[in-house]
């Protein structure tokens, strides 16, 4: 990576009284890439995002957003950073359009710019039909889209999305994914937190694992990637598959409703298994990891304790 990181976090900790929400977080996120922030409920994701969003001071450690320190120069950070909170607050009596125009005004756009930017964003997140309705009539998913639009008002180059997909229907999730990928392609650095890992798998380039307020080290993430994991094999004739596996001496991890699970360590071994099965004449219709990359790593890290 030749460009400087868009987000650089080092040794950040933050506690609330005796609750250590974030203990030791170190990671980087880069321009043009989508970084997943992964962790179970209560692992400190939201607290970390609040610190990145210049709302909360870290007790220890340093944060740089495009090189700016949110503690000493929050204004510079706010100019380049867009934040979509996990709490869906909206000004209930304002319409969608007014909400976006007001937000634009708060980002120091003039009235004409605010109007055109609001129209653009309404179109971008697909709220045209509700544009002149008060925000209190919006459904959860629609509020989510409004919240995303609000985070994009000032064309930020660093985007912090806290659980952006919760409450979205499948179509809206795909829209979200396409939009996030597009923003990254345009050069933004996007940090997405979620505990729905399948969803992150589809859009993230990098991942930061957070558990009990601590980020997993690069080494332990690498290590988990190469640990043994289940791949799922589905054949046109399940009986033939079972026979072939037994004959070839490949151990199985049992069957589920979708197929047979085969534990393998790493992609090379998986490719070898597939070759042997096809060579044996089994008609394979599907072959792939039983759980997504992120989920596998996440579960493996959680199992292995904190690193």
């Amino acid at each position: 990576m030749t460009q400087p990181p868009a987000i650089a976090v080092e040794g950040v900790a933050r506690s609330f009284g005796s609750v250590h929400a974030v203990r030791d977080v170190t990671f980087e996120a880069h321009p043009g890439r989508v970084t997943a922030l992964i962790g179970p409920n209560g692992s400190g994701k939201t607290t970390l995002l609040l610190m990145l969003a210049s709302l909360l001071q870290p007790d220890r450690g340093t944060i740089r957003i495009q090189g700016h320190d949110p503690v000493t120069d929050p204004r510079a950070v706010r100019r380049v950073m867009g934040w979509m909170p996990d709490v869906l607050g909206s000004w209930a009596t304002l319409t969608v359009r007014q909400t976006l125009e007001t937000t634009a005004r708060l980002y120091e756009l003039d009235a004409a710019q605010a109007r055109s930017r609001a129209a653009e964003l309404i179109d971008l997140v697909g709220l045209e039909e509700l544009a002149d309705q008060p925000t209190r009539v919006l459904s959860r998913g629609q509020k989510q889209r409004l919240s995303l639009a609000r985070a994009l008002v000032h064309r930020p180059t660093v985007l912090l999305l806290d659980e952006p997909a919760s409450g979205l229907d499948p179509a809206a999730r795909i829209d979200l994914r396409v939009l996030v990928r597009r923003l990254a392609a345009e050069g933004a650095s996007v940090l997405v937190s979620s505990h729905v890992l399948a969803e992150l798998d589809e859009m993230a380039d990098d991942a930061v694992y957070l558990d009990h307020g601590v980020t997993a080290s690069r080494e332990s993430v690498e290590a988990s990637r190469s640990t043994v994991r289940d791949w799922r094999v589905r054949a046109l004739d399940p009986a033939a598959l079972a026979a072939a596996l037994a004959e070839l001496g490949i151990p199985t991890g049992g069957d589920d409703h979708l197929g047979t699970l085969v534990p393998v360590a790493g992609e090379q071994e998986a490719a070898a298994v597939l070759t042997r099965l096809t060579a044996h004449g089994v008609a394979i219709s599907a072959f792939g990891p039983a759980v997504g990359d992120l989920e596998h790593t996440f579960l493996d890290l959680a199992k292995g304790g904190r690193s």
């Binding site: 969003a53 210049s54 709302l55 204004r75 706010r78 100019r79 950073m81 934040w83 909170p85 709490v87 869906l88 607050g89 909206s90 000004w91 937000t103 708060l106 980002y107 120091e108 919240s147 609000r150």
Partner: peptide, 10 residues
Amino acid sequence: GTLATTQVTL
């Protein structure tokens, strides 16, 4: 939850 979204603006 609307105060924080105002606070992150300029």
